[in-house]
């Protein structure tokens, strides 16, 4: 039965579903990369995702307009980011903890609004898979790469874009400077507060999209606590990727594909207890990091509020 794992159906299945599963992680983790690069740990990603997820679903459900839903999810996520920015930048709140607060807030509020505004689990027609003539028909590869919906493609386009912004633009330079040495950045006239506001709000907006990618593109339902820890994994993936968009991509794909692999292991009837199979992605993520001992440092100012010396 183990050999069944190496059949093309299974391999294509794992790759295709890995790519799909990685989508919400990518949006959320790239957003988190930006905020961490500027020195802010946002543990509230999960809450922002849930709010975004609900907002997108609700708007799409009532208006039938998916793009409007996506937009609203972004705005709502960004708004939560704005509050978070105020709390961390202006009020210097402990970042890890305020993040947990925002997580709880988002978890509760999304559920509360869901109960009040929709009530029952409903479905909508989400973003459809995009058929690309020619490409989608390529056996194997077409199914893996070119048979996904627009938000999946968006997630992968985000990776080079994020890399470009972080490494090739003045904005990126400022973000990195603020995260590494805020005092120096400040003395050079970079507004630490403004940069951090920007990254946290951006992170919020991307988390909103991450949530929307679940509720109006991949799953097309909304349910209480539907992200189920996904946002926390996304934060972990930022560390996995060593604050590089490409690294984050690698982590997201690895985690998702191993997750899909464990589903196949169960489906193929390979005799491993289901709980042990479910453990696999978590164990492997750690093991890979151990094996590839990286010496990358976190941004020096991560979690440290900035204050001008008077």
């Amino acid at each position: 039965m183990i050999t069944d794992l190496f059949s093309t159906t299974v391999l294509i299945g794992i790759l295709a579903s890995g790519i799909r599963l990685a989508t919400p992680y990518l949006y959320a983790a790239i957003g988190e990369t930006f905020s961490q690069k500027s020195g802010v740990l946002n543990l509230g990603v999960e809450g922002q995702m849930l709010i975004g997820s609900f907002a997108a679903f609700y708007v799409a459900f009532t208006t039938g307009n998916l793009w409007l839903g996506l937009l609203v999810a972004m705005i709502v996520g960004a708004l939560m980011g704005l509050v978070m920015a105020f709390v961390t930048v202006n009020l210097h709140a402990q970042q890890g903890i305020s993040g947990i607060g925002f997580y709880l807030f988002g978890l509760g509020l999304s559920d509360l609004l869901f109960q009040r505004l929709i009530g029952n689990v409903e479905t909508i027609k989400g973003f459809e898979k995009i058929y690309i003539p020619g490409l989608s028909d390529i056996p194997g590869i077409g199914q893996i790469l070119f048979n996904q919906n627009i938000l999946v493609y968006g997630a992968y386009l985000l990776v080079p874009l994020a890399w470009f912004v972080l490494n090739k633009t003045t904005l990126g330079l400022k973000i990195r400077a603020v995260g590494e040495n805020p005092d120096a950045a400040d003395s050079l006239g970079v507004s630490v507060a403004r940069v951090r506001y920007f990254t946290i709000v951006l992170g919020g907006a991307l988390s909103g999209i991450a949530g929307a990618s679940l509720s109006i593109a991949l799953l097309n339902v909304f349910q209480q606590n539907m992200t189920s820890g996904l946002g926390f994994i996304a934060v972990a993936l930022v560390y996995f990727g060593a604050w590089k968009p490409v690294g984050v991509l690698g982590g997201a794909l690895l985690f998702s594909m191993v997750n899909s692999l464990q589903l196949w292991i169960q489906v193929l009837g390979i005799p491993i207890p289901s709980d042990i199979a479910v453990m696999m992605p978590y164990v492997l993520t750690i093991l890979v990091l151990v094996a590839t001992v990286s010496r990358v440092r976190a941004p020096s100012a991560l979690t440290k509020p900035f204050e001008r010396d008077e």
Binding site: L91, A93, I97, S98, L104, F105, G108, L112, Q224
Partner: peptide, 25 residues
């Protein structure tokens, strides 16, 4: 009241308390 509201309240309390620290500091 729905259990969800309780979760919201907990979140708010955490956010407010952690933010209030600034005055003490």
């Amino acid at each position: 009241v729905p259990s969800a509201l309780i979760t919201v309240l907990n979140g708010l309390v955490v956010i407010f308390v952690v933010s209030s620290e600034i005055w003490r500091r």
